[in-house]
Amino acid sequence: MNMAITIEQSELDALERAFQLMWGNFPEPVQLTHKNREIIALNAACAQFGRSKGMKCSSHGAPEAHKGCLANQAMRTQQPVYKKIKYGEKEMITYWLPVDGYPDLFIHFSVGVTVNYDEIPELVQNSK
């Protein structure tokens, strides 16, 4: 079975630019991933956790952290899937989102990794 990425490089470059426009400043780690688990693009928050473009996301961290991965379901059904998980003391909601027009790609992220949403006041103003 050939798991190679069959998307032209120019198209991958355009997808990476679009990904950065949408997710580059998101405060939680986000990655654009191929079905073979190769990371196509990632935001700055994701890079801070030791992930990098071209690596297999499944090789990051302990193998048990990837049990229950729903990427295959998201790609098979072409519907977003999510679940609550507990990792250490943190509770997170993890998402796998198919990418319209690209059945072999998905966006993967969790909320609650870098931000404790239970401690956010009703109105947060940016002081920049």
Score class of each variant (00 low, 15 high):
residue 100 D to K: 09
residue 70 L to R: 05
residue 32 L to P: 00
residue 80 P to K: 07
residue 97 L to A: 05
residue 107 I to M: 07
residue 40 I to T: 02
residue 40 I to Y: 01
residue 100 D to G: 04
residue 46 C to P: 01
residue 55 M to Y: 03
residue 48 Q to M: 12
residue 72 N to W: 11
residue 65 A to S: 12
residue 88 G to K: 07
residue 85 I to K: 03
residue 71 A to Y: 08
residue 67 K to N: 15
residue 34 H to R: 02
residue 67 K to R: 15
residue 106 F to Q: 00
residue 61 G to P: 03
residue 68 G to W: 09
residue 106 F to G: 00
residue 95 Y to A: 04
residue 33 T to M: 13
residue 79 Q to M: 08
residue 97 L to S: 06
residue 68 G to T: 10
residue 58 S to Y: 09
residue 86 K to W: 04
residue 77 T to D: 14
residue 86 K to N: 08
residue 104 D to N: 13
residue 49 F to P: 03
residue 104 D to R: 10
residue 97 L to C: 10
residue 69 C to K: 05
residue 92 M to Q: 14
residue 32 L to F: 01
residue 85 I to P: 00
residue 99 V to W: 02
residue 83 K to T: 12
residue 47 A to E: 14
residue 75 M to C: 06
residue 33 T to Y: 06
residue 95 Y to F: 13
residue 81 V to N: 00
residue 84 K to T: 14
residue 93 I to S: 11
residue 62 A to H: 15
residue 83 K to W: 10
residue 68 G to F: 06
residue 47 A to I: 13
residue 55 M to S: 08
residue 32 L to Q: 01
residue 50 G to H: 01
residue 49 F to G: 11
residue 83 K to D: 12
residue 77 T to E: 15
residue 54 G to R: 03
residue 48 Q to V: 06
residue 105 L to S: 02
residue 104 D to Y: 09
residue 57 C to P: 03
residue 73 Q to A: 08
residue 50 G to Y: 02
residue 57 C to R: 08
residue 61 G to F: 07
residue 66 H to Y: 02
residue 35 K to W: 11
residue 97 L to Q: 10
residue 95 Y to I: 05
residue 34 H to I: 01
residue 75 M to W: 09
residue 74 A to I: 05
residue 62 A to R: 15
residue 58 S to D: 10
residue 68 G to V: 08
residue 61 G to N: 06
residue 53 K to M: 06
residue 102 Y to P: 00
residue 80 P to T: 08
residue 49 F to C: 12
residue 89 E to Q: 15
residue 102 Y to N: 03
residue 47 A to P: 04
residue 78 Q to N: 08
residue 88 G to Q: 07
residue 93 I to A: 08
residue 108 H to A: 13
residue 97 L to T: 06
residue 65 A to K: 11
residue 84 K to P: 08
residue 92 M to I: 15
residue 74 A to G: 05
residue 84 K to L: 15
residue 70 L to N: 02
residue 44 A to E: 11
residue 98 P to C: 05
residue 105 L to T: 02
residue 32 L to H: 01
residue 77 T to F: 14
